[in-house]
Design a protein around this nucleic acid. Structure first.
Lengths: 201, 201
DNA sequence: CAAACTATGTCTATCTAGTAGACAATTAAA
DNA sequence: TTTAATTGTCTACTAGATAGACATAGTTTG
């Protein structure tokens, strides 16, 4: 195994392959996408594909991994100053994650397609859950005692439900509006949100 | 001057620069787009830009040229079998040009922007006129005698008007519907259309 | 079901297009 | 006016893109 350095050129090429994959999945479904399709669409030589990936599954995996890694990284940003926020004071900037999804909607729209990247429907909510588990502490209203593991799972999957609906309906509700709704729903049972993530910004 | 061969790789890179230019014009206007912007957006090295173009104007010019060349080439296709067509029998396939515009809408939308590629608003209608002049013969209804130069100019710019409106309104009317309208309007004064282009398909 | 075709993954050899960086000259901003 | 950013030109280097061959596996279709 050679040590692989990441050069801009490499990255660029890989991004083009990723983009091609996304478009082709939307056009004809993941199963039937061939390496040939991908290189024809992205206008690279077939050999080039194999210098970067072993097959389309590796490409899909990397795409999935990078997008959800980005999702995780987007989360803490708004909390770099105020670590603990009363839900009354949540605002549109508190949900960087939503902005991230919207910016990368071309990718996230893949959840609308039947024959899409394997595992995407599992990894998506589990990533949100992981974010909740590792980076946040919630307080219930009136400090009502609950099993926090369950509470996090409950709210993470709830948020996932809202998010996928937003994506599925073609982002009709504006980002602002959508975030407002999410805040309202959070306020029904959360008193405060505390960011405990380690990430530095 | 070295003889320059067109390789797939070269073409691909150029297309990426073209795409970057289109997006950046939409974002911030043509004037303020810098070469730096373009290479940052497309993720190439600045040197690479200069191996292909002298400056952004050359890039814009090539983009313009290739798009309108494509427009010209799209025109004759439907008439490869029936050279003369009674306007009664015009159908959705008769207007390959409209399909072309729609397929390349990302580019053609540039006409909506104030600060856009210079000359685009002149070259667009003049290209349509050129197509009419070089490739078609029209017969008026009842063989009503008209100056054919004027008639072609009149109908070419008329068509241009419809086309730009279609683009400006975000392609709300479907391709099919739009073509139907164009046919109806043609039928108000054209008896037949004859393709006299030289191009072979 | 066999023949014909298409796609896959691996490999070798070649070289061009992309890269990094320096430079003086312009242009824009503070 | 000074400072900073962008431009266009050049040189030198090489990573990554290319073409093509090959055996294998998977699909079509007659």
């Amino acid at each position: 195994m050679e040590e692989q350095f990441i050069t801009p050129r490499k990255n660029r090429t890989k991004e083009h392959f990723q983009l091609a994959l996304i478009q082709l999945i939307k056009e004809k479904g993941f199963r039937t996408v061939t390496v040939k399709d991908i290189v024809e669409y992205s206008k690279y030589n077939r050999s080039t594909f194999y210098t970067h990936y072993h097959d389309k599954f590796y490409l899909a995996e990397e795409l999935l991994y990078s997008m959800f890694k980005g999702l995780e990284e987007a989360v803490g940003k708004p909390y770099q100053h105020n670590k603990e926020v009363n839900t009354e004071y949540l605002n549109t900037r508190s949900f960087e994650i939503i902005t991230y999804v919207y910016r990368n909607r071309n990718f996230f729209e893949l959840i609308n397609f039947q024959d899409t990247i394997p595992e995407i429907h599992i990894i998506f909510p589990e990533t949100i859950l992981k974010i909740y588990q590792e980076n946040f502490e919630f307080k219930t209203i009136n400090n009502l005692p609950v099993n926090m593991d369950y509470f996090k799972r409950y709210t993470a999957y709830g948020f996932y439900g809202l998010l996928t609906n937003w994506i599925n309906t073609g982002f009709k509700t504006s980002q602002e509006e959508f975030i407002k709704e999410v805040i309202k729903l959070s306020q029904t049972h959360m008193a405060s949100v505390r960011y405990i993530g380690e990430r530095e910004f």
